[in-house]
Design a protein around this nucleic acid. Structure first.
Length: 291
DNA sequence: AAAGATTCCAACCGCATGGCG
DNA sequence: TCGCCATGCGGTTGGAATCTT
């Protein structure tokens, strides 16, 4: 039993990537863009599984990656974000432009853990190791465990506003945190991720964080499209009516594939004067269709 | 200089999730 | 509603690089 393997293991390379493989992957993505990782290896002439290609691209080859050592400010930011989010490396990475979740995870395990231990801080709970009273009082639950315990449903028509702050933001300059976190990137990121599994953690963490960190506000607003999910966008037209003034580019990242499809379908029909039903009859979805 | 120990990080693995037919 | 598929995530590992003795 179990799921089928993601690729034909017998005919795939494993281990370190060669320069030639890197070049092939880069060339292919430059030409065709990211996506459809499963079929990419064959298309690019690589004897790798799609997962491996994706990982190599995201963690190593992407042109927007920042190379080099982590700065002191990045260190502190990671510590603070970890105290809020736990081992949600991808969420943490989302706040550090040019850094990947894998890189941050590794860096955490090799450097920051030790750094915190040297400061007498438990890396798991972010509390003083000697502070047994507090630990006992309130913290059987680490951020991760806590996040996993609660269940955030993506309740419709609720614009969730979370106030996250850092109680322990003693050493990082407020302007840095402000700049890195409370900017549009955060909002964009949260919007992008509101469709990801991790959205379930956002609300929970916020409650805990409000208690922990009352001194700094971060408005992390979860964007609109999800609100309509429960209506299965039967109200796609009403959704579009409400938001048609926004550019597609603005909303695309927020949409599920289905929503995107409906959006484009609506635009297509408007453009060519079809009813949505007529337009649907003209539409042929290829087997390999993916957004 | 050599051997063993430790550190580091790229890559792998399995699972969870969402989208689609 | 269900099953399949693609993708993303977090934990783990293997081996190269570096350090210590």
């Amino acid at each position: 039993m179990g799921r089928s393997p993601c690729c034909e293991k017998a005919h795939t390379n494993k281990g370190a990537w060669t320069k030639e493989e890197d070049d092939r992957l880069i060339a292919h993505i430059k030409t065709h863009g990211e996506g459809c990782w499963r079929s990419l290896p064959k298309a690019a002439g690589l004897l790798r599984c799609g997962k491996s290609c994706r990982l190599r691209w995201i963690n190593y080859l992407r042109p927007d990656l920042k190379r080099g050592n982590f700065t002191e400010e990045e260190d502190e930011l990671i510590i603070k974000l970890h105290s809020l989010l736990g081992n949600k490396w991808s969420l943490i990475a989302g706040r550090l432009p040019g850094r990947t979740d894998n890189e941050i995870k590794n860096y955490w395990n090799t450097h920051i853990r030790r750094k915190l231990l040297n400061r007498g801080i438990d890396p798991a709970t972010h509390r003083l190791i000697t502070d047994s009273t507090n630990n006992h009082h309130n913290n059987n639950i680490t951020p991760t465990a806590s996040a996993a315990t609660h269940n955030v449903n993506s309740s419709p028509d609720v614009t969730t506003t979370t106030n996250i702050s850092f109680a322990s933001a003693a050493t990082t300059s407020p302007s840095t945190i402000h700049h890195l976190i409370k900017n549009e990137q955060v909002e964009d990121d949260m919007k992008l991720r509101c469709d990801s599994p991790d959205r379930r953690n956002i609300k929970n963490t916020s409650l805990e964080n409000q208690e922990r960190c009352p001194d700094l506000n971060l408005e992390l607003r979860i964007g609109p499209p999800r609100h309509h999910q429960n209506n299965a966008i039967s109200s796609s037209s009403s959704y579009i009516q409400q938001h048609h003034h926004q550019s597609v580019e603005y909303y695309q990242p927020l949409m599920t594939r289905r929503e995107k499809f409906r959006w484009f379908h609506h635009m297509f029909c408007m453009q060519f004067g079809y009813t949505e039903q007529q337009g649907m009859q003209l539409y042929h979805r290829p087997q390999s269709y993916r957004w």
